[in-house]
């Protein structure tokens, strides 16, 4: 399966999905002008991936900021992840240690989607 790599910009995050190497990462700021446009290829890639997923999948999210629209978009992405019928699916939620808001967002997602969330504070 082809790798999906999107370079980071001022408004959009770096996206690195690589099935062979079992890497699924989104990091940076998410405030695109048109979030539907930005996320569409990401959704599609993941739709494809879940047809034949690796034995374990860890989605690493290290988000500096996301606006309300991208909030929903991340939700959508997590929904796709939910479809993988496996125990070995988890989300790594990276956030700045003091950022309670971000931690809370992570908690919200965990609650909403029921996915296994691992919290990784960093300073």
């Amino acid at each position: 399966m082809d790798r999906l790599f999107i370079e980071a910009s001022d408004d959009t995050p770096e996206v690195n999905f690589n099935k062979e190497e079992n890497i699924f990462e989104i990091s940076g700021k998410i405030l695109p002008e048109n979030e539907a446009e930005f996320f569409e290829p990401i959704y599609q890639w993941f739709d494809n991936y879940i047809k034949d997923p690796n034995s374990s999948t860890t989605l690493k999210l290290k988000i500096d900021y996301f606006n309300s629209a991208s909030h929903k978009a991340i939700n959508e992405l997590l929904e796709i992840l939910c479809k993988i019928n496996s125990e070995n699916v988890k989300v790594e939620w990276h956030y700045i240690k003091d950022d309670d808001d971000m931690l809370e967002s992570g908690n919200d997602y965990a609650e909403l989607t029921g996915l296994n969330f691992v919290y990784k504070p960093y300073s």
Partner: peptide, 8 residues
Amino acid sequence: EGRKFMSN
């Protein structure tokens, strides 16, 4: 450090 102001 270019961080968010944060609610706390």
